[in-house]
Design a protein around this nucleic acid. Sequence first.
DNA 1: CCGAATTTTCAAAAAATATTGAAAGTTTAT
DNA 2: ATAAACTTTCAATATTTTTTGAAAATTCGG
Lengths: 168, 168
Amino acid sequence: MKLIEAKQQFISSWGAFGTHWGINRTMAQIHALLLISPDPLTQDDIMEELNISRGNTNMNIRELINWGLVERIFIPGERKEFFSAEKDIWKVVKQIVKERKKRELEPMLQLLDKLEAVEGDKKDKHVKNFVDTVSSIKKLGKQADKTLDTMIKAEETWFVSALMKIFK
Amino acid sequence: MKLIEAKQQFISSWGAFGTHWGINRTMAQIHALLLISPDPLTQDDIMEELNISRGNTNMNIRELINWGLVERIFIPGERKEFFSAEKDIWKVVKQIVKERKKRELEPMLQLLDKLEAVEGDKKDKHVKNFVDTVSSIKKLGKQADKTLDTMIKAEETWFVSALMKIFK
DNA sequence: CCGAATTTTCAAAAAATATTGAAAGTTTAT
DNA sequence: ATAAACTTTCAATATTTTTTGAAAATTCGG
């Protein structure tokens, strides 16, 4: 397979993959393109490679910057802005975990705390089942939260070798 | 907070949560409703509780069954079918992990294997960066795959205590 | 086998989401 | 201060996804 074809497949699969994870196709594709580009690219480079409009490109680059996955690069003597993606995949994964934890897991745990305190007779099977369900989700969620916190701080080498030890 | 209100909040949040994870709102809401229902429900019960159409209810129940999260219950003397969700949250999580691994991670790893074998001069920085990126994603993906395999087989108590040990 | 009860399908409609492109805004070199 | 280069915004449009509901299919008791 030629590089040009492999690149296209990589970008298009990364885009499809993203849509399964609540990330829009274009955002994932821009990320993929930057990952495999050895040098920073401009907005125009990205527009051209992916055949998307200026507005779309701009919005999604910004979103990637919000997620901490892409950074603006200043190149002396250049008028245009350049963009580059973090290439260390372990850092990328940690960054995504960190953001999703903050945006999704933490609010969910807050809600569960409130819901667990529902009024009503615990003898009533509806009340009991509700509280039990909420409590068990909360328990697992809290555990996941702690685990992810530690993971976010971890080095890959340390993490992998620790995992190897338990999951042997 | 009254049970009825707490239920509604739980269902609606579970639905919103699902949409961030590529699961459609209705499917997540049906799942939430079944999780907090002590007894199995019929299609009509679900339609009425969530105010959704018969077709929509039917398709999403089926999808939940495909995911292994809901099962049909046969109740002697009843003509209608009843549905019930797995209540053990650890089992639910393992089931979801298992399915997503099969549907998403495994095909991605297969693709990466192919892409890693791209033709071209490894001295060319474009080729080199492409291969390096693909390889490192593959490496992390393979590790995740193994880890998840072990997790799928694990008991919750064992899993949590093992995690406590490393992530202390 | 009949017909009522129930489930399933799927084309059409609605809703949600993503994309465009042109205009407005900003920055920079001279 | 000006104008060209570049970036950002956002209303309109297009696309994708979800939902509906009525018709078709299936199941089951008698």
